[in-house]
Every structure is written in C-alpha cells, then in structure tokens.
Design a protein around this nucleic acid. Structure first.
Lengths: 365, 365
DNA sequence: ATGAAAGCGCTAACAC
DNA sequence: GTGTTAGCGCTTTCAT
C-alpha cells in the first residue's frame, strides 16, 4: 500500500489548485463543469479518496453520530441461547442472542441513515485514562450513551462540548443538567405486570428478584412492583426478596433455587427484574419438576428475543429499545441543527406488558 | 458550546508542552507520574477531549473498522413483520425485522470489540461524486462491503490503499484481485434443500422463483437447485420458473399467485430464492386456501428471524451472517497487522438447511 | 470561477 | 523525561 494520494496530487495532475479540488467534492456547482471533470478524472486515475480525518479536522464536523455501550457480554445469552433454547439443537440461532444494545443500534442506524449520518459504535473496554467515550467523542458530532457505561463526571465534561443523550437510567439532576435524556417507563411496566398477576390471575404470594448493583432502572421496576402490591393490599417490604449480582441466567437459576428452598410457603409467582434471570429460573424450575405456570408463575422484563423462544414463553414487559435508538438520533440531530434551545429534553418511552405462557396466559408466541 | 479546548490549552494550564500532553494520552508511562497527574487534572478541569480527527490525521490510523451496505429498506420486512407475523397483534416485534445486515453488524461489532476497534456503519444513500464508500473509507483503517453496494471500479481504487473485504457475491477475478472475499455456500445449500424435498418428501414437480436483478448469490442458489434436480433425473430449464424484481414479500406473494394460475399441473413445491418472498407466498397461499405443506411445500433462503415466526414455520437455508461479520473483521485485522502477504484470501462459509413446517417436516421452532 | 495561504488539533522525530 | 518543530490532508476566508 503506497502512500495515498492527496488533494495536492489531484490538483497537480489536473492543473488546478487544491482549493478547486476541494470545491469539486464539497460544492460541485461552484466549479465550472469542464474543470470539474478534469479534477474528477485525475482523482479517479490516482485513486484519490478524501481523508475523513483531515476533513473533520478542518471543518469541525464529521457526519457521524456515535453510541457507547457497556461490554454487556453475558456469556449465557451469547452461548446458551445459541445452543438452542427452543429445544431443537439445530435451532441454534443468532436471533436469540439479540441483545438490548443490538436493538438500540438498529434504531440508531436507521434514523441516522435517514438524516445522512453514519453511525460509530463502540462497547466499553477497560483502558487507560483514554476511556471509551473519549475515543468516540473525538470522532463524532454527537453521541448517545447507555447509562452507567461511563463515569458521570466524564460525561459532564464532554457534554459541555457536544450533544450527548443519555439512554435509560434516571436523569441525574445533580450535574448533568445539560444532557438530553431518554428513559422507559420502568415503574409503569412493572406495576402493570404485577397488577395483572394479582388481579387477573389471583396470585398474592409474590417474590421479586432484583439486582445488587446500583441500577436506577431496576430500582424503578421494583418500585412499580411495590406500588402494585400495596394497591392490592399485599404487604411488601422495602427491599426485593432477593438481590443477585449480575442479572444473568446463571444467577436467575440460583435465585429460583434459593426462593424455593426458603422456609415458609412457596411463592405463587417469581418476578424477575430482567428476562435473562427469568429464563435461568425456568431452567431451574424444570429441573426441579416445578411446573410453570401451574405451580408457579414466572415473569421477566425487557422483551428480549429469547423470552419468546423459551417454553413456556415468558411473560414480560417489552422495552422499546429500537425506538429509543431512533429518538436518540432525532434528539442529537435536532441539537446539531440548533433546534430547541439550551433546555435539556427528557423523554420517557412507554412500555407494554406482553402476556405469554409463563404467567398462565394464552400460548401466544 | 464554546470552542473545545486543545492540547495547547491543557499544556498551558498545566505548564508543560503539548508533546507531553500528547504523551500522557498515548503513552502514559513515558511521563513522570507527577507531571501526568498535573496534565490530567488540567484536562479534566478544561473538559479536554482529544480530537479523533486530528489524531487520525497525524498518525494515519483511526482504530475504527467500517461496514458499507446497501440501503436494503424493504418496506415489507420493516413494517409487516412488526405488524405481527405471529398472528398476535400485540406481538409486534422488532426481532422479526432483523435484517441480514443487522446480523453482520452484530458479528463485526463483537469481533471488532475483541480487537479493540470501534465500528463505523453506513448504509448507501444516493449522493454526489462523494459516494458512501468514500465517506467510510476516509474514516477507517479498513472496511467490509456488502457485494453490490458500490461500483466495482470504485472499490478497485480504494482497495489499493487500504484493506477491504467483500462480503457475499462472487469473487470478481477481473479487477479485484487484491480484495479479500467471504461468501457463503449458496449453491451447496440450495442443492441440499432441493435434494431434501425430492428424496425425503418425494416431491418432483418443483418451481423455482429467482430474481431479475443480477445477483451472483441468487444465481448460485439457482444453480444448486438445478444440480439437485438433474441429479434426481428431474428436468429443469436453464432459467428459474419465475424471476421477480425485488425479492420482497409483495413480489413473493405475486409470484405465488402467478405460479398457481399457470396452466398445467400445480407444482408440489415452491422454492424461493429468499425468505421474504417465501413469507409473502405463505400469505397468498393462505388467502387462497391452499394448504402448506399439504397441498404445496414452500421454502426460502437466508434464515431470517421472520422465517421461524410465520406459520407454518419456513423451511430454509440458514446463512451464517453473523459469522461472516466476525470473519470479515478477523481478515481486516490480520491485514492491518501485516499478516498473510499480498495474496488475497477467499473463504466460503458453510450453510445449513433448516427443516421446519413449510416443507412437511416436524413442527420445530 | 479560481488561487494563495492560514490554520484545524494532534503525532512523531529529533534535540536537549 | 520533556520541549521544538514539522507536517498530516483538508477547508476556508480573502484576493483576484
């Protein structure tokens, strides 16, 4: 790979100045047709491709939007799902491993495309002072970050310089007032799902499995659960019945074991703060010969693809991740085109309860 | 948004030279700890974020890999699938709309992440002389292109300057000898699927629906079909029984109509060159009261998520799109790290036949 | 319509 | 260890 040709090479080859070469690419109409052709011909011949970097540097804009997300590689989701959650070994399926972040990527890509932007995606990796965000931030016109991917303070700094929209997580009123923010109605969803279990299925002994890590989303879900219980006159403590470390299938499986082995009456329903745990629990339950939903109902949260593939299919709350990605782009684009003033936008996306077999509803899906 | 701070600002603020600031970020250990802290502190205070563009320009490398793909927005796939292919209206599902390209993106993202690269994705959009590739090419260290996304000659030019791997499509021996290339075993897959229909289900009156556009992949599939027929002593012409324009659900539906309305005996099996058409056909067949697979078998190709969701589930050939994305990155990374010499690599990924309801096999999935 | 020249913010030799 | 000095390839006034 010899050294790449530059504007200078093209200029020389076509007998014009570098300014003209530049114009040919940026604003073709400002150059006489004949000149333009000469330049284009030379460019073709030399194999000239404008350097995006040089361009970005000189023009301070890249035409690229970004997305940073945590390195969510849940080994379970990526392997177990592929190993065939449907029972058919040959059904090993990429789709089942579709993650959260993949849906957001899809949404952002589509929306970015509509607006003529490309999308730069990067998952966090541990690294020096040069964190992930910095890498992305330095290469895009604006970007979205999944909550808790990067230190808040870092975002604080960066968002002073370019549009940033925070995805999920709560609005952090403390420092990040100038950040746009999109979240989903976690509490609403979990409340409605819980209400469904209580009122429609007549269940009253419920157990909730949350997370040990600080996660505003997960806390909001628990809050919704509590609200629904109280509204129905069911007593609940201020804490989930169980908190697990990772919200993975493995932990969910363990959680189910723990809950069933507890002294006292067995719960009629196990509510998990996400689908992965619920799926893990399903495995445990099957292994122990506990029937779902007859002996115990199980519910998740998220609406990942896997939730529909397991048997029984998982009743859950679907988060509009794709839509979130789209809205993120819309927000960024609006900021970049100077729309809505300095006031930070904050939106909450509605979720929907998906009733499937694991709570005792029909066999849809 | 005031103007962003630069190395100069940080240097001044911390009383060092810009070179030192640069070192702190690129090679922290080459700077005395104390100095480093001062610099980092200043950076934090000023809200300094290194410019990826300036960096790329100066160092001629970006740490980013790219992917260009066609603007495949099949309106059917994106809307009809979401409208609930499963019958449950509430099952509106993002997953069903998972495209081809989304799987490749997933694969590339995972692999890129492992190697410390970010991924830049861009779908083609009509544009001036400044085509899509140029935009991507100018911002990445190397990239993958889905076949037929960009003019061959353009690729020819660019691939002289940076690693490019072509996805799908045949190797173009004419001009693009220095391009790496990954394709899937289209012919093998269609041949095996056809053999299955003939030998295992005893069907002999088959009809093949291909595409009118030039597509080497689609042609290879047809070739596999022909081979299987001939091997079984079934006569077939040199052309598909029908060629449609777009390979969309709508066209597939129309194709089914056309085939059923033809004079002569009704075919026992309808083989489509992709899943989307097959799904469209399923709709038509149901509308007309033709039972699948009892009256006629239907098969697709690709293994998109939707294929498993329709009823009956579609028998198809699964392409390892995700794996393709991963391999693409591996190839690019190897090139970038100077591995395997100038000789272009070409690999063919195996596919697998997925037997489901639409051909008369079990009810898996 | 086209050219000249001054950066854009950073890296990379090379000195010290 | 740290500073100096050239660029990297392009955009962009400002002239002409």
């Amino acid at each position: 790979m010899s050294t790449a040709p530059t504007v200078y090479d093209v200029a020389e080859q076509s007998g014009v100045s570098i300014a003209t070469v530049s114009r040919v690419y940026r604003n073709p109409d400002s150059v006489r047709a004949q000149t333009r052709e000469r330049v284009l011909a030379a460019a073709r011949e030399l194999g000239y491709v404008p350097s995006g970097n040089a361009r970005g540097l000189a023009s301070r804009s890249t035409g690229v939007l970004g997305l940073c997300f945590p390195d969510y590689s849940d080994p379970d989701a990526e392997s177990e799902a592929e190993a065939g959650a449907t029972g058919g070994g040959d059904e090993a399926d990429d789709d089942a491993a579709m993650l959260y972040s993949d849906q957001i990527i899809r949404g952002m890509e589509r929306a970015a495309r509509r607006h003529g932007y490309a999308l730069l995606i990067a998952a966090s990796l541990k690294g020096g002072p040069e964190s992930l965000v910095a890498k992305v931030a330095g290469r895009v016109d604006g970007f979205a970050v999944l909550a808790r991917t990067v230190p808040t303070e870092e975002l604080e700094v960066i968002s002073r310089r370019q549009p940033v929209v925070m995805l999920a997580g709560p609005r952090e009123t403390d420092h990040l007032d100038h950040l746009d923010h999109i979240e989903v109605a976690n509490a609403d969803g979990q409340r409605e799902l819980t209400r469904h279990l209580i009122e429609d299925h007549g269940l009253r002994r419920l157990a909730y499995v949350g997370s040990a890590e600080e996660s505003p989303d997960v806390e909001a879900r628990f809050r919704g659960y509590v609200e629904a219980c109280r509204a129905a006159g069911i007593e609940v403590g201020p804490e989930p019945d169980l908190r697990v470390g990772m919200m993975t299938q493995a932990e969910g499986a363990r959680a189910a074991d723990a809950l069933l082995d507890r002294a006292g009456e067995r719960p009629e329903a196990l509510l998990f703060a996400n689908d992965q745990m619920a799926v893990g629990a399903l495995h445990t339950l099957e292994r122990r010969g506990v029937r779902v939903p007859d002996d115990v109902a199980v519910t998740g949260f998220d609406g990942i693809a896997l939730s529909r593939l397991v048997r029984p299919a998982l009743t859950t709350v679907r988060q509009p991740m794709r839509r979130m990605g789209e809205e993120a782009v819309e927000l960024l684009v609006r900021r970049l085109t100077g729309a809505h003033g300095g006031d930070p936008v904050s939106m909450m996306l509605p979720v929907s309860v998906v009733r499937r077999g694991s709570c005792g509803c029909g066999v849809a899906g």
